[in-house]
Design a protein around this nucleic acid. Structure first.
Lengths: 127, 127, 127, 127
DNA sequence: GTGGTCTAGACCACC
DNA sequence: GTGGTCTAGACCACA
């Protein structure tokens, strides 16, 4: 459900947070649904459990997740709106990345070609 | 000629490297041309000389620059093709970032709006 | 395991790089093995941590080491062949130095006596 | 008559000094003979005149060369014995280089093969 | 705890 | 003047 890019500059715990938010905005998960246990998800994504724990911790602080002792973690009631707030920060990160690439000499044509390439690769992975 | 974003997650020395590569791809600098002295560029960009020295050092290891002790640093012969290779990897990094954002739930419309926003901010900084 | 000559013209960070490569060619370290933490090795060799960090950084750029943030640095998969390539370039450097000495008028007899002297000093330092 | 290796770790001015000493030990030049003017030699070896000037200056301080105003520089009377003293420092430099290579993991077998290779290349260039 | 970045400032070598 | 190395010490990110 969530894919991790180890070689990305974006920290893994952020990718995990983004991934969970994505599942909610894409309606694959909703308020009240249980998210995988830390250890299970860590095993699934082949990352350190501490990394998952950090992602969950921050999502809980943010009010996106709720943890119930002894039961696990669940999507919180206000998660849908909070997820779209999260989307905004993801968008902003992309804007910054584009600006940096520009500063490094990338032309707008290159930027457009990058989007085209991403679209093609994206549809390839579609299920 | 080179702009630095101190608050970026991308290290300053990488921004300097990208900036120099950009000057070559934009034909503002070519093989044999001398690049600014370390201390001068450091003063210009208001960063520590060590940081510039590191950028130059890595560009030398990469074969993009050549340095002659006591004379200065110069764009190497093979720099043009290396620079375009570098551009390609910057483009590729952007593709990956877009895919990551998509997986996190960002819509293509959001991606387009991000580009639009970047374009606006980019022209603001232009002098 | 690694010996450093502070008074040598060869920079310390190069000696550290050579030393690590040597440990691999001598099979004392292999792919996947963890190398000492930067600060630990710095203390051991009585040099500044930055100097060790630079050696590690360049070995990473070279593909000889891999680092995982918060975990440590490890010998990379392709390290063995890269190490022997490195040995080859060290050997080549020695050939060039000998030729240089010859051009400067050193006789082959002098060259042999130099090796003899090196052998003696080498065994003196051995523990 | 003198060959320069730009990529060597040995500074160019030292190579020039060594080269001149070599010409004397090989009896191609003797006391009273004039050495080339700084500018001419610099042009011949394609190096900065300052570099040649430094080599000559140090050889004069050492008593190996003598300069006569308006005439040029000449091999000094005591040059032959001083040249062999110089040979000793060249030999010592070689010993140090071998020790460093050893420390970097080079085996004695590799050292011997390096000498063999140097011998072959040396005879190729012989006139 | 790990590695990574940056600053500040000193010292050396070469031209 | 140029680049190159090293130290000292601070701060951040990640596990």
């Amino acid at each position: 459900m969530i894919r991790i890019d180890n070689s990305s500059a974006v920290p893994i715990y952020e990718q995990v947070k983004d991934g969970l938010r994505g599942l909610v905005t894409r309606k694959l998960l909703g308020p009240g649904d249980q998210v995988p246990p830390i250890r299970g998800l860590a095993e699934l994504l082949v990352v350190n459990p501490n990394t998952i724990a950090r992602a969950y911790r921050e999502l809980i602080l943010e009010g996106f997740l709720e943890s119930r002792k002894g039961e696990g973690a669940f999507i919180a009631r206000g998660a849908v709106s909070r997820a779209s707030n999260g989307m905004e920060s993801i968008r902003r990160r992309l804007v910054d990345h584009i600006l940096l690439s520009r500063r490094a000499g990338l032309s707008w044509k290159d930027v457009q070609s990058a989007i085209q390439e991403a679209k093609e690769e994206d549809s390839n992975v579609e299920k």
